[in-house]
Design a protein around this nucleic acid. Structure first.
Lengths: 243, 243
DNA sequence: CGCGTTATTGTCGACACGACTCGAACTATC
DNA sequence: GATAGTTCGAGTCGTGTCGACAATAACGCG
């Protein structure tokens, strides 16, 4: 009723604050998430997303960068953004833990393999997590689900798509990002037009990719220009195999 | 390098976790935020957004509902959604505090006045906060800024607009919400068509509002139907007086 | 060189959106 | 009660976008 809270501020409850990271990347035309296998007691041998305790003298963003660097060796990811906080009582049976979840996007798998132990970490298709095939430790399944939903929205509103492809890329590679994340089929011709209509977002390099083993006309190579913030070129209208 | 963190988990640093709420409502055609005046030492007499400590036996959402009820008396707000976490070192000079920020939307001012002390709380135009006229306690100015940006995005992607108007409303009232939050002018005729085109979102009641003192044809009254989740009817294309 | 494959360019119809106009229904004032 | 002013609802029209589809270009391979 009153503005005075009935809770004594001098006796505030203590929490552990952790930063967990959902690391996404494209592999073989499908969206993958980096998982680590737990070796300790709660949820031992379960797969989990990497994370760790926040230190008092660092910001949340700095903690996320530090954890990502410790896990993968990547110092400057294309995308590393906070997207949610999770603090349900009992989500960690040992103590009261509030975790701040981050979404990271890496360009290719080579970056990940360099910094992590292959036995303890693995790239897993996100469909295994979304479909319930693979149950993660703690509430990490729900956190991954929320991260995917976030990246689906960001894909339409921002230029996050270029974070999934290499420094130079073809239109087909970029289109695969949209198709894999949204689960739709996009017309190649219309996609190309829409991307090029957003002036300055992709810049032609003049070079061409060499065709694959199946032949075909070589595709032009582009590199990412500036990012946009409102109203990207590709909009989510028709949905085919939505999950 | 390795997956083993060099930080000892048994000696994790303790944090206080708070939940702060940016409470938004429409008043006199402009977007307003509810602020409370601090009476205690850090930032005494500064304006701040309401909030309080999270308890170990409640979820973050439950803590937000409890704080909102304590501050305003409102038990079931149309919108109460988490949008960010803030944990910069030194943001609270007393101790290490990580706060989880929530966005609340209330229908009208009457709800607020009932549960709070008028001397300690006030509805303030968000333009005063965004424009830098009013500097809030802690990092609350930035938190409010992020909340406004969030509601601007949600306005385009979801049906959050109806949360700002009453249970029944006219097209002009609903249009005012978009115009105030985006800072644009919308054509009344085209707005009406776009809203009605999204089938089932607003439901005509058959009744009519009585005209104001200036006369005019009485407007039809609508009530909110289902909410949508992707691709609302009104899109942000032209911008006039953007801040 | 012909064929399959892939990338790029072209065309066309449907539809959404913004700018604008006009009629409908009410209040206020003379 | 007639008229002006005001607000809302409905119609029109031109432009631009978007999706579907066809046509052409550039490669590898046999």
């Amino acid at each position: 009723m009153s503005t005075k809270t009935p809770y004594d501020p001098s006796q505030f409850p203590a929490f552990a604050v952790t930063v967990d990271i959902v690391i996404l990347t494209m592999s073989a035309g499908a969206l993958h998430v980096l998982l680590v296998r737990r070796g300790e007691d709660p949820f031992e041998d379960f797969w989990a997303i990497p994370g760790g305790f926040k230190r008092p003298n660092e910001t949340l963003d700095e903690a996320a960068h530090r954890e990502l660097r410790e896990e993968t060796g990547v110092a400057a990811p294309p995308v590393l953004a906070q997207f949610g906080a999770y603090g349900d009582p009992g989500r960690d049976p040992r103590m009261n833990v509030v975790t701040v979840a981050y979404l990271a996007v890496l360009r290719n798998v080579g970056d990940i393999e360099a910094g992590t132990d292959a036995a303890d970490a693995a790239l897993t298709p996100v469909s295994d997590v979304l479909g319930g095939k693979l149950r993660l430790a703690f509430d990490h399944s729900g956190i991954v689900r929320d991260a995917i939903e976030r990246v689906r929205v960001e894909l339409e509103a921002t230029g996050i798509a270029t974070a999934f492809v290499g420094q130079t890329f073809t239109m087909a590679e970029l289109r695969t990002v949209y198709e894999a994340i949204w689960g739709v089929q996009l017309d190649a011709a219309n996609f190309r037009r829409s991307i090029l209509a957003e002036e300055g977002w992709v810049v032609p390099t003049g070079r061409r990719a060499r065709p694959g083993t199946t032949g075909g006309r070589p595709a032009e190579l582009y590199r990412a220009g500036r990012a946009w913030s409102h109203g990207g070129p590709i909009h989510r209208t028709h949905r085919t195999d939505e999950r």
